Every structure is written in C-alpha cells, then in structure tokens.
Simulated assay, not measured.
Amino acid sequence: MIKTYPLNGSDRDLIEAASAKIRDLYEENRHHVGAALRTSSGKTVAAVHIEAYIGRVTVCAEAIAIGKAISDGEKGFDTIVAVKHPYSDDEDRALKVVSPCGMCRELISDYAKECFVILNVNGETVKTKIGELLPYKYMRDS
C-alpha cells in the first residue's frame, strides 16, 4: 500500500488547471489527456498530450508540461496531475484524474525526486510522492 496525503486547495486548483486545459483543447484522436504541473516557485504549467497514429510517437501530457516548464527556466517541481477527457463514445462523460504511465513516472522521478503526484486510489483522489509509484529506482547491489 502506498503512502498517501490529503489534497489541499492548491492541489484542487491544479486539478482544475489540467481539467480546463483538456476541456479547452480536447480533440478526438489528438488530445485526450491534460496535465498541470506546479513548480517549486508556485507557477502552474499546463499542457495536453499529443496523440500519434504510431503509439510510440505519442507524447504524454505530463512530459509536455515538464518540457514546457524546463523551457521556461523552471527547475523545481512540486506537484503534477493528469486528467483524462472521455472519448466521444464513452457513456461516462466525467473528466477523471489518471495515474502517470511508467515512462512518465520515470521522467517525473528523474527531474523531481520529491514531486507529489495526484491520482485516484481506491476511488479517492489523493496525492503521493513519485517514489511511492516508482520504488527502488536504479538500485545497485552493494
């Protein structure tokens, strides 16, 4: 079981920033995930994922948000969240907080070992440290 922390007002604002970004830019088969990143300086950076017909070319929203923040000179990251927009044929029309994929977990951990990640655990939206989602990263035998 991972250690979780309750959300605060800034975390809810971050979820809303990711939600607003994907609501505004959603395009079927192009963009269906939005992410928002709060930097250590307090800046919020939001982005959408870029879908490609060849899956390995697709770039996740979290990676784009991290790249955008770094390109703007930000170096420290506090919290990140991703929100999925329903596809046009989904019955459930609600936006949902989603957990980062494995590659995004690696990227988040590489750039911010203490970063919080907002996700759903057992139906509850909470946050945890990236290390909880990627334990024992790059351990070497002693």
Results as ranks from 00 to 15, higher is better:
residue 3 K to Q: 12
residue 3 K to P: 00
residue 3 K to W: 02
residue 5 Y to I: 01
residue 6 P to Q: 07
residue 7 L to F: 05
residue 7 L to Y: 05
residue 8 N to Y: 00
residue 10 S to Q: 15
residue 11 D to A: 04
residue 12 R to M: 11
residue 14 L to Y: 01
residue 16 E to L: 12
residue 16 E to S: 12
residue 17 A to F: 02
residue 17 A to T: 01
residue 18 A to S: 06
residue 19 S to I: 08
residue 21 K to Y: 06
residue 21 K to A: 15
residue 22 I to D: 02
residue 23 R to W: 04
residue 26 Y to K: 12
residue 27 E to S: 12
residue 28 E to H: 12
residue 28 E to G: 06
residue 30 R to K: 15
residue 30 R to V: 15
residue 32 H to S: 14
residue 34 G to A: 11
residue 35 A to M: 05
residue 36 A to L: 05
residue 37 L to S: 03
residue 38 R to C: 00
residue 39 T to I: 02
residue 40 S to P: 04
residue 41 S to F: 06
residue 41 S to T: 13
residue 41 S to R: 10
residue 42 G to N: 06
residue 42 G to L: 09
residue 43 K to A: 15
residue 44 T to H: 05
residue 45 V to E: 10
residue 49 H to W: 06
residue 50 I to M: 13
residue 52 A to I: 02
residue 53 Y to D: 11
residue 54 I to A: 10
residue 55 G to E: 13
residue 56 R to L: 07
residue 57 V to P: 00
residue 60 C to M: 11
residue 60 C to K: 13
residue 61 A to G: 13
residue 61 A to Q: 09
residue 64 I to Y: 12
residue 67 G to E: 14
residue 68 K to F: 11
residue 69 A to Y: 04
residue 69 A to K: 00
residue 70 I to V: 15
residue 72 D to K: 12
residue 73 G to L: 07
residue 73 G to K: 08
residue 74 E to F: 15
residue 74 E to L: 09
residue 74 E to A: 07
residue 77 F to C: 01
residue 77 F to M: 13
residue 79 T to G: 01
residue 81 V to T: 03
residue 83 V to G: 01
residue 84 K to G: 10
residue 84 K to Q: 15
residue 85 H to C: 11
residue 85 H to M: 14
residue 90 D to K: 03
residue 91 E to I: 11
residue 93 R to H: 08
residue 94 A to F: 07
residue 94 A to W: 03
residue 96 K to W: 07
residue 96 K to I: 08
residue 97 V to F: 05
residue 98 V to M: 07
residue 98 V to H: 07
residue 98 V to E: 10
residue 98 V to K: 07
residue 98 V to Y: 05
residue 98 V to S: 07
residue 99 S to C: 14
residue 99 S to W: 01
residue 100 P to N: 06
residue 101 C to F: 04
residue 102 G to A: 11
residue 103 M to R: 14
residue 104 C to H: 06
residue 105 R to L: 15
residue 106 E to P: 00
residue 109 S to Q: 11
residue 109 S to T: 03
residue 113 K to Y: 04
residue 114 E to Q: 12
residue 118 I to P: 01
residue 118 I to M: 01
residue 119 L to D: 02
residue 119 L to C: 08
residue 121 V to R: 14
residue 122 N to H: 13
residue 128 T to W: 00
residue 129 K to R: 14
residue 132 E to L: 05
residue 133 L to I: 03
residue 133 L to R: 08
residue 134 L to N: 15
residue 135 P to T: 09
residue 135 P to R: 09
residue 136 Y to H: 15
residue 140 R to Y: 10
residue 140 R to H: 07
residue 141 D to I: 10
residue 141 D to R: 12
residue 141 D to C: 06
